[in-house]
């Protein structure tokens, strides 16, 4: 093994890979959230659909998006590998376990939480990404631009609103976001620790930023389907889109 592969495949190297991929995915969450928040604009979807159109057609974004899939996969695969290796490090377990005395629940259940998130991502992709790219089941909608042209965008906005009128889908999304919150409760700060970033001056900022990631962002993500659900179900009798 040369120095690079040995570094990456070492115990610390794998942690660092987990940290870097994890932090990249965190940055993705921010971008994705900004887009998603457009769903709450009651503008017949022009802002959201424009955003969606841009995201799915811009070549740079498309490349990053492929990278994103690769990173999710890498994060999951390294985690799987680490989990297997860690299980081997304790062939005979304890009869009495008391992890709650010395560590947080989420830190001990990252694998479980990660698996929930992976299932979520698969469902979520099937739901919307697949439908947009390969499904062809979503109709288009025409908009008048500022300079007088008429453009036709896939009406993902409508599709999302329709999906989130289903309470089961909403519940699935909300629960997944709770899982994400717990995942990031440990994962976000842990990534900095893995990278060796632990300093009394800056730990406070990591904490604050961590709160943003494990609470505010998942909460906003969960807020969107809830809001849409309540808007659609309580107004379905009086107004329609």
């Amino acid at each position: 093994m040369n120095w690079f592969t040995s570094a990456v495949s070492s115990s610390v190297g794998k942690k660092i890979m987990m940290a870097l991929t994890g932090l990249f995915l965190c940055s993705f969450l921010v971008v994705h959230l900004i887009g998603n928040l457009q769903l709450l604009n009651l503008d017949l979807g022009i802002s959201f659909n424009t955003y969606a159109q841009f995201m799915s057609h811009n070549p740079v974004i498309q490349t990053i998006s492929k990278g994103n899939f690769a990173i999710i996969l890498a994060h999951a695969l390294i985690a799987l590998f680490l989990t297997r290796q860690n299980a081997k490090a304790r062939p005979i377990g304890y009869q009495v376990k008391k992890g709650s005395a010395n560590s947080t629940w989420s830190s001990r259940n990252m694998g479980l939480l990660g698996t929930i998130l992976l299932v979520f991502i698969a469902v979520h992709l099937y739901h919307f990404w697949w439908a947009v790219h390969y499904g062809g089941s979503i109709p288009t909608r025409e908009y008048l631009t500022d300079n007088g042209d008429i453009v036709a965008y896939t009406d993902l906005y409508q599709a999302v609103w329709f999906a989130f009128s289903n309470p089961f889908i909403v519940a699935f999304y909300v629960l997944s976001m709770i899982a994400m919150g717990y995942h990031l409760y440990h994962g976000f700060a842990s990534a900095f620790q893995s990278l060796g970033l632990n300093h009394i001056k800056y730990n406070f900022f990591i904490k604050v930023l961590g709160f943003l990631f494990y609470f505010v962002i998942p909460a906003l993500y969960a807020y969107i389907p809830l809001k849409i659900y309540f808007l659609t179900c309580c107004s379905s009798s009086s107004c329609s889109h």
């Binding site: 081997k88 304790r90 992890g99 005395a101 010395n102 830190s107 060796g196």
Partner: peptide
């Protein structure tokens, strides 16, 4: 054959000498 660190912090809590996580960060 020891496993990989996943930063649960359990070690520092149970350490009789209370050695902190910052040392693992320094190792990293």
């Amino acid at each position: 054959g020891f496993g990989n660190c996943s930063n649960t912090g359990a070690c520092s809590v149970e350490c009789p000498k209370e050695i902190g996580q910052e040392h693992i960060a320094r190792l990293n």
